[in-house]
Design a binder for these strands. Structure first.
Length: 191
DNA sequence: AGGAAGATCTACT
DNA sequence: GTAGATCTTCCTA
């Protein structure tokens, strides 16, 4: 299990370090899991692409609160999974954009209704559907044992990390805030 | 009531 | 690989 302190850092650092970690989703009868291969960092008031750009509101207040909790919202009919991460007293979150399926692949296929494994979880809306993640899991703690959603340490392995501008946002910052594992087939887009 | 939102799927060239 | 329809909340007027 990753500690709270892991998430109490600059969102860009957390986003980068989440690559290679394992996302675990507990269902009634089964466990689904996957390796995180693509993420994006979001900040607060100074980040025009952030949900928190226009200040604290009811729907985004989780971004201002405890780190290590999920922040889930709907975009274009897709639930997107973020994990709250920021320095003490700050604002921010990390969007999980893609995972590589490990356990429960058949269930993911059913949830997604596609055959191709490369298409199962290679996008932020795809992975939430595959793992049956909805608003109901909003605000749960991923650092807690036996949580319905957890992030744990992955295998010790080395990989190259690439970065780029964030995808799909109307107005982006200058910094490269998207991170992904080089040559991994489950990354949503190359570039 | 209306429209925007960190996307995805389908159907074409 | 691109264009367009469609997706479902929640915010703003």
């Amino acid at each position: 299990m990753l500690s709270k302190e892991f998430y109490e850092r600059d969102p860009a650092l957390v986003a980068r370090d989440l690559l290679g970690k394992i996302l675990i989703r507990k269902l009634d009868s089964e466990v689904l899991s996957g390796k995180i291969v693509e993420t994006e960092a979001y900040y607060g008031e100074n980040d025009p692409a952030s949900r928190a750009y226009r200040g604290r509101k009811m729907f985004n207040e989780l971004m201002f609160m405890d780190v290590g909790k999920t922040f889930i919202y709907m975009v274009h009919g897709n639930w997107l999974l973020n994990i709250v991460a920021h320095l003490k007293g700050g604002v921010g979150a990390v969007l999980i954009r893609a995972i590589e399926p490990l356990q429960g692949i058949e269930t993911m296929r059913k949830n997604r209704n596609v055959k191709n494994i490369w298409d199962l979880t290679s996008g932020p809306g795809k992975l939430t559907k595959a793992l049956a993640i909805t608003k109901e899991l909003n605000g749960i703690d991923v650092t807690e044992r036996n949580s319905l959603l957890m992030v744990v340490e992955g295998e010790k392995e080395s990989f190259e990390i690439c970065s780029s501008r964030r995808i799909g946002v109307k107005v982006d910052l200058q910094q490269k805030l998207r991170f992904f594992i080089k040559r991994n087939k489950f990354v949503s887009k190359i570039s």
